[in-house]
Nucleic acid binder design. Structure first.
Lengths: 219, 219
DNA sequence: TTTCGCTCGGGAAGGTTTCCCAACATTTCG
DNA sequence: CGAAATGTTGGGAAACCTTCCCGAGCGAAA
């Protein structure tokens, strides 16, 4: 373990307690000079610009613009930004999106403090780090296809129609009837779509639809 | 602020970093004698019994039996248990169910350390505490629609847990693993739940969850 | 015109859901 | 108290659905 010159770190998480936990962990490292905290997208970006931290540790579920958008915004300004994502989500799609947005590392909140420091070390040295359990999941998927634009871009017109109907709650049969196709064809499409979007259950399709504003939510 | 005799606290959260954050916060209070940590339902209950803490601080999303079930189990053994729920969820339904299960307080992870200490104080004195912003939401909902109740009150505690996990996008297997039940049991539950709620697809369950404010719409 | 990607669906294997049932625990109530 | 109702867990069997692999048609680029 080489001791780098002292680092400044921007810590982005909307949970005060998590920031504290981090503070505690990082406080006992002697390579860290300064910890800057942000609790939403806007202040995260502002502080990145004004403070120029060496490393960013960021939660994905942020109030405001959201974590991914913040990553993109930071990377757009500084292509060399070192961002370690620290999320509750362990689904491949989140990792894929985060990395594609420009993050250099991804770990989950349930991982051990040691692993967290390991990730931090890697990212600060400009290496990439993905939590091993997650990396495996991701890799398996990446052999099937490599993409990650918006849903509309990834899917063909027909696939998108099927996606919409399924995300609205239609069964395979109902969707087939609606599109004058056999249920078999729909089932095939749905498998394909789930594969493309990196999810495994139908419900996750609905979530994607909600989160992209394709389906409106009433609350 | 009166200084109570020194308290022992059982801290239940599956994220190591959150436990650290708590440790840091509580460590600087002189009224606290001892912090016991648990990262799942089983050890939480076991430690409650063996250590007899004065206060329990608990996350709701626990691997194993789940937070609500753990609260119920503890309260059943000790009707006087002082449990403060500390959750990421700010949807009224979560608060309602937690309080109904026997919690004495409810705050979210995004609230300030000061508020957290305030809640801790209240609960340790056997008062009830609900984060003000949430209390308001809860009240408003109680005036508006009892729709949420009609939907979720049709389900038993266990059914509701299964419903939540499935609505969040978990597969039958994943849900089973999460609750330490066989996939078969989950499949049976899901059929039952769909029947009770009058829907036919899993995606419709997710829609119900969204429309009741049980699932938040992100971005 | 050859190649490519999209659309559509068959087949087989394997997995999931449904519905029915049983055991056991807990709660309720006369 | 003891009977009845309800809740929790899962087995069994049949029906059903998904996945993956394949091929055929079709229209648009190259």
């Amino acid at each position: 373990m080489k001791s780098s010159p002292s680092l400044s770190i921007l810590l982005v998480d909307d949970h005060a307690v998590v920031r504290m936990g981090y503070g505690m962990l990082l406080g006992q490292m002697d390579t860290i000079a300064k910890i800057i905290e942000a609790e939403n997208s806007e202040s995260a970006y502002r502080l990145y610009v004004t403070e120029q931290p060496d490393l960013v540790i960021m939660d994905l579920s942020l109030p405001g613009a959201g974590g991914l958008a913040t990553i993109r915004k930071i990377v757009k300004r500084d292509a060399d930004a070192r961002i370690l994502v620290f999320s509750v989500h362990d689904e491949p799609i989140y990792i894929k999106r985060a990395m594609d947005s420009g993050a250099k590392g991804y770990i989950t909140k349930s991982c051990s403090p040691e692993r967290l420091l390991e990730a931090l070390q890697k990212v600060s040295e400009n290496d990439t780090y993905i939590q091993p359990e997650l990396a495996q999941k991701l890799l398996i998927q990446q052999f099937n296809h490599h993409q990650t634009e918006s849903i509309t871009d990834q899917l063909t017109a027909r696939e998108f129609e099927v996606f919409l109907l399924v995300a609205q709650g239609n069964s395979t049969q109902a969707t087939g009837k609606h599109l004058h196709l056999s249920a078999k064809t729909i089932a095939n499409y749905v498998s394909l779509i789930k594969n493309k979007l990196g999810v495994t259950t139908d419900v996750e399709l609905a979530h994607l639809a909600y989160n992209c504003g394709i389906l409106p939510s009433s609350n």
